[in-house]
Nucleic acid binder design. Structure first.
Length: 465
DNA sequence: TGGGGTTAT
DNA sequence: ATAACCC
């Protein structure tokens, strides 16, 4: 693979001074005390146009052509060939075809493959360090602090040779090899390069990485050099980075609603938010949001990298121009449910709650969803792992009750979206440790576990109990 | 705007 | 159950 990557001038190994020829003695009094939470090394890994990459792996004949992934009337993402020809993410298919008549479109409404590949990426990263947090299907945060600490100890024992940064350094800031924070981040950049190399060698995927001292900064810096490159942020450059955002809505964590409310207060730039009265901001947005986003505006983010683990919920949705009869709705719900049951079967855990979500037509941009949820009856849960045709009918009945609870089917209605969600996932059944049930349930008292590798409900027959 | 996800209230 | 956030 060619790395279209340049080395940041001024960050080259040449910055290593002639001093400390042997053992880097200066490490000893600079190491951050164990247990100190003061300085972390975080990497944000962001795959390049993920859906398009997955499609090009599945269909190698598409490589080199401008490719867009279509969901309904939108091109949700596209490869770089298409971007060079003017196609943007979330562009209308009409506009995209107009801009780029040669554009090849593939349907990406079925997320199955994307989801599978997405979890392979997360699992690969978990091999480096188990603390991996997913953000969507194509981004992951990894806390490298411990790994970096181990490599630092290694460096002190072995020869301290290759102290060179991998990839770009934001703002071309020179690395100070006497600064332990710089050294730790530099090692983080080396690990990030190894991660990207592993993703390419093992999965054929390219992506960007950003290394910094917290999630916010790692995420912001990962996008600086864009396809297939990585960037390191040194602490002295963090103010430059956040002020390079030209509007607060670019700040991860400040979404549509908050942006509107901030604008109403006359806040539009990052500096506006930094300098705005904390008291007034707390009064306007509530203390929690106010304090969090004002810290973000300074580039401060103490939120931990929270291991995502297996998903908390499974859902399938479909949007459409119009659904206005109960029969129509039931058919769509059956489709969604069939896919969901397959997924739940693969996962090995059992959902204890179902939710039905609808979107009603409205001429305004109002965009609001309504939902109803209920516990899944235990007799259905028991049958969930195995032959899912027994569960189809009773589950549809449950879902149609939820449907009629939300929609008065005796009155005209117009829906534009239906979604079914399984959540409240529990390991295998409701048996709790220490109870009679637990010891009488073979699947719990023997070795089977739903780890990160999917567990098939092969030999367990919950119905027998 | 799609087809997903998460956490907080 | 909804509302906010993320992709």
């Amino acid at each position: 693979m060619e790395r279209a990557e340049t080395w940041a001038a001024g960050s080259s190994p040449g910055a290593l001074g002639p001093e400390e020829p042997g053992g880097l003695p200066w490490f000893h009094d600079q190491v951050v005390p164990a247990g100190s939470s003061s300085s972390r090394v975080i990497v944000h890994v962001d795959l390049d146009c993920f859906y398009a990459q997955v499609e090009m792996i599945s269909h190698p004949e598409l490589k080199g052509k401008p490719l867009g992934v279509q969901q309904k009337f939108l091109v949700v993402t596209c490869n770089y060939e298409a971007r060079e020809l003017g196609v943007k993410k979330l562009m209308n298919v009409r506009d995209a075809k107009e801009k780029c008549p040669q554009l090849v479109l593939v349907n990406g409404e079925d997320l199955t493959r994307y989801r599978e590949v997405s979890y392979k990426v997360t699992e690969l990263l978990e091999e480096f360090s188990p603390v991996v947090e997913r953000l969507g299907f194509d981004e992951n945060f990894v806390d490298l602090t411990e790994m970096v600490e181990k490599r630092l100890e290694q460096l002190q024992r072995d020869e301290p040779s290759a102290l060179t940064v991998s990839g770009h350094v934001y703002g071309n800031q020179p690395i100070n090899l006497h600064d332990i924070l710089h050294i730790r981040l530099l090692i983080g950049s080396q690990i990030a390069a190894e991660m990207r190399e592993a993703m390419y060698n093992q999965l054929g995927l390219t992506g960007c990485a950003g290394v910094a001292s917290n999630k916010l900064l790692a995420k912001l810096v990962s996008g600086i050099f864009k396809p297939n490159q990585q960037t390191l942020l040194l602490p002295e450059s963090s103010q430059d980075l956040i002020h390079s955002l030209n509007h607060i809505k670019k700040m991860p964590g400040i979404g549509y609603k908050t942006t509107k409310r901030l604008e109403a207060l006359g806040i539009s730039s990052v500096r506006d938010l930094q300098t705005f009265s904390s008291k007034i901001l707390e009064r306007e947005l509530g203390i929690s949001v106010a304090q969090r986003i004002q810290k973000l505006s300074f580039g401060e983010d103490n939120s931990p990298v929270t291991p995502s683990g297996p998903p908390q919920s499974f859902s399938e949705e479909d949007s459409f121009k119009k659904c206005s009869s109960e029969v129509e709705a039931k058919n769509k719900i059956e489709e969604l449910l069939a896919s969901l049951l397959n997924r739940v079967c693969q996962d090995g855990r059992k959902p204890h709650t179902v939710r039905l979500i609808i979107r009603r037509y409205s001429s305004e941009k109002h965009y609001s969803r309504e939902s109803r949820q209920c516990p899944i009856p235990s007799h259905i849960i028991q049958k969930l792992g195995i032959g899912n045709y027994d569960v189809m009918t009773p589950m549809v009945d449950v879902l149609m009750k939820l449907f009629r609870n939300m929609v008065n089917v005796k009155m005209p209605f117009h829906l534009t979206l239906l979604s079914v969600c399984f959540c409240n996932l529990k390991a295998l059944n409701t048996a709790k440790k220490g109870t009679i049930d637990y010891y009488l349930t073979p699947s719990l008292s023997t070795t089977s576990r739903s780890g990160k590798h999917s567990f098939k409900m092969k030999d367990t027959h919950m119905e027998d109990f």
